[in-house]
Design a protein around this nucleic acid. Sequence first.
DNA 1: TTACCTTGATATAACGTTATAGCATATGTC
DNA 2: GACATATGCTATAACGTTATATCAAGGTAA
Lengths: 339, 339
Amino acid sequence: MVQKPTLETVAKLAGVSIPTVSQALRGTGRISEETRRKVVSAAQQLHYLTDQKAASMRSGENREVGFVINQLSNPFNAEVISGVVDLLEAEGYLVSILDTRDDANRQRQQLESFIRHGRGGLLWVPTVGTDDTTYSLLRAHRVPTVTFLRNVSPSFDHVGIRNAEATYQATQHLINLGHKTVAYLGGTQMTLVRRDRISGYQKCLSDNSLCRPLVWDSEDTRLEGLNSMNTLLKAHPEISAIVCNGDMVALGACLALQRIGLVPGREVSVVGFDDIQDAEAATPRLTTMAVSPVKLGRKLAQVLLARIREPDMPVTVSEVSAELLIRETTGPSQNAVAS
Amino acid sequence: MVQKPTLETVAKLAGVSIPTVSQALRGTGRISEETRRKVVSAAQQLHYLTDQKAASMRSGENREVGFVINQLSNPFNAEVISGVVDLLEAEGYLVSILDTRDDANRQRQQLESFIRHGRGGLLWVPTVGTDDTTYSLLRAHRVPTVTFLRNVSPSFDHVGIRNAEATYQATQHLINLGHKTVAYLGGTQMTLVRRDRISGYQKCLSDNSLCRPLVWDSEDTRLEGLNSMNTLLKAHPEISAIVCNGDMVALGACLALQRIGLVPGREVSVVGFDDIQDAEAATPRLTTMAVSPVKLGRKLAQVLLARIREPDMPVTVSEVSAELLIRETTGPSQNAVAS
DNA sequence: TTACCTTGATATAACGTTATAGCATATGTC
DNA sequence: GACATATGCTATAACGTTATATCAAGGTAA
């Protein structure tokens, strides 16, 4: 145990050659049952574990993939990761997670490091401000890549959410409840995701002949949601409902309402996005657009596996629909009742 | 660009030998300024990136480390990870994160995979129920290892929190406010961390001649905190204050109180543990035992680096103190005022 | 018998690096 | 001018695997 066990050590102990050991352990080639047993027992005795660095260097195969994500602390992301990891680990892959914290420089560093270490696949939520050289870097090194949520380039497979459809549905729900002044709260930059969500919100307003779209920025945390809602209410006290870019923002917004004595779902209605665990636990329980993070994670894993196995298959784009989950933070407009 | 660039490709383009390229790019050996420039330009032209698998195989050096953690979705952990990653990435390391979700089997799989892939270092929150063979696996393969939070084995370096001291302080704070019936809420199994925290709580009670320790289980999520607090209140309506095993539980407990019309900090006082972002954002703002996750993360990274550089140094144990942050969820006992 | 196939193993080369040693050529010293 | 030393580069081997080719021994068919 003083020396790292290698094929050579095992071979010596079993009294056979190195290739024999390699084949016996992997079940390839023509090895008699008897020597196979000898080899396996020797390997166990020495606690031998294949050195994958050496193996993958020779064989080209590589069961290490990475998930480069924009915000690890977001519980929705954490749940997606669970789904991905479950499926890929079952297939013998090692999934490692990198957090860019939406910093393009950090992301660049991480991806270069990623390529240098020769990972066999990439699941990727591209940072805001990712530039073209990053895409060509990945293409040049032939990294099988699936983008997630942010569909930034037609050369990569993609798995995402039907964002415009979802916010349209959320907005329509509020309008059906009689709300006339519906604002959009959340996001800070014009990512594709946010653009799509806002466009669904706007289209719904105009389809219903309500023509005052109002979009307000906020980081995707409870704290920022609280602060932004405060400023929004000060600037536009007339709004009676909001569609949020994420549950964390929505929960923060509910807190803001409660602090000034308003009840979410009575004076002001709130719709979230994601259906994280806390949405159900909050008081009042949050109405939200639910997407199953585990289902998304599985889909992601499946697409990546397909791409790894068939590098030349045509690029695929998969989008899953969100589902409106009506809980307690949405209710009939007070104005509508009054009029 | 059709072929993966290697030292050979670069050497051919620059018109020099392979070792020359290797040395020129790393700045070792004796290379003239002129050829160095030639080589660097050729490398850039081909988008050459060192294949670390091959490099580390030959040189033995390995700048890949892993952080094997028990619960990725916990925001406190996410913040610790940030601290670790900041420091290690600056030193040229690639940090990848694995989530055991506190499942010993999964953890075993992940660690074996981890070793096979030859990682150069490990930061580790061991799962509940980790058995001895796992420790010896890590020792046998000489993986530089630092345990975090759960100090399970004297053969690894450790970074953790002064848990008993912290809960003692929290409990004393409640007692000073006049509370006589203080319960402990959170955790599900007898991990070392929880044992230490409970012992601090108990010692404080007995030091103050209050002899009714009451410990109640709960998973470390808001939802479970809510449910557990409900059952606790039903079983023991007399309690006037609780010390919690984590902020998530504490926030859930506050929700439970609010649902039945009680105000945290008035009828029942609540102290959390961790000081996650939401502790400040909650209504009312959560009193908690604060440990700086970023500071912990940095410490972790430093200890690991030291261990990697000096594999034979004596084992170190570092513990940081938590600090009582008094906010709004703790207040004078109503009984004390009445009597 | 000769020719051919099957079985069970091994020898050898290769993956892309880096460490070591070696070999010219230029520079300095006495 | 002879010798030592410094400079700049290259040849070679090695890291631990796996892929390919090869080889000996035994079995089968004509």
